[in-house]
Design a protein around this nucleic acid. Structure first.
Ligand code: ZN
Ligand code: ZN
Ligand code: ZN
Ligand code: ZN
Lengths: 161, 161
DNA sequence: ATATGTCATGTTATAAAGTAACGAGACCGG
DNA sequence: CCGGTCTCGTTACTTTATAACATGACATAT
């Protein structure tokens, strides 16, 4: 668990930016919410709500689900994390300056989830929606497969819990 | 529950085709699996596994979850149904001749899910995967919003259970 | 016909994910 | 001080999904 000072500073900066973003919206990144975000950012891959609960519980004793779900819901609303339906998990947004639909490449071996900036779908998607006279509210795009590091490996998933 | 004879025949034909498809693959669409598929087709929108359980239970008494989940898993493998992550549901595939990723437009008011044939994503998706050196296994694309019928309505969701 | 194997299903129990409802403390403005 | 709002704690529960084991049907081999 020896994280470099540099990384710690970068993390703090990131959290400060998130706090500022919330403040600018008249919302507050409370200590709990900040810590939950920190946990998710540090993980670097999607975490289940109950993973977060377990981590928090080591620090503060029993933590009930609503405590964490509320914070995660808040972070979702603020666009600071994304929900990953494929794994029932939550991952930190890599570009949280404004809310957007996530486009994720999720490795089924190591569990990493890479968020892609460029809109992969968009044009044809909106065309199709227009043809259907369908009013888009949100889009879920999740690509499952093997990341560069894992595509050689034949071994079973290990997903370093 | 007065379904027209025509519709019943069309449904039977569809189920027969599914059976033939399985047979051609050395698999068997057993009575249970056929009935589960029928239920999902008849619903015309995503059903939860427990919805299917309830319907089956009216016909045969207590039905335990594994019974239905196994059938649904089979139908998923055969590409006869799709899982809809957004609603934890299962919907009949509208073009099951060969397996494919579903691209679904899901109405959040009435619950219908329209499957689109044209690949909305593809080109740019594969480009991006190539750049990441990511080996695609499957793609989840779910568009949430309001269908043509529901986009006028302001009332709350009713999702005719 | 008896044994062996495979497949589908039944059955029990439990895990994993998510939410409803209520209450207590902090904090702010009247 | 009081009333509202916001955050979090707590209890209990619902919904979704799976593990593990048992049974019955059918096919094939001895
Ligand atoms: Zn993002
Ligand atoms: Zn990987
Ligand atoms: Zn389909
Ligand atoms: Zn609708």
């Amino acid at each position: 668990m020896t994280q470099s000072l540099e990384r710690t500073r970068a993390l703090d900066r990131r959290l400060d930016q998130a706090a500022e973003l919330c403040r600018a919206r008249g919302q507050s990144l409370t200590p709990l919410r900040r810590r939950v975000l920190e946990i998710v950012v540090e993980a670097g891959r999607p975490l289940g709500a109950y993973d977060v609960i377990d981590i928090l519980a080591q620090e503060r004793g029993r933590v009930a689900p609503p405590t964490v779900y509320r914070s995660l819901d808040f972070l979702l609303e603020q666009g600071l994390v994304h929900k990953v339906l494929s794994v029932n998990g939550f991952v930190a947004c890599s570009q949280a300056t404004r809310p957007h639909a996530a486009e994720l490449f999720i490795c089924q071996r190591c569990g990493t989830a890479v968020e892609v900036a460029r809109r992969v779908a968009d044009e044809r998607l909106e065309e199709t929606a227009a043809e259907l006279d369908f009013a888009i509210d949100s889009v879920v795009l999740e690509v499952r497969g093997r990341c560069a590091d894992c595509r050689i490996e034949t071994s079973p998933p290990h997903v370093t819990a």
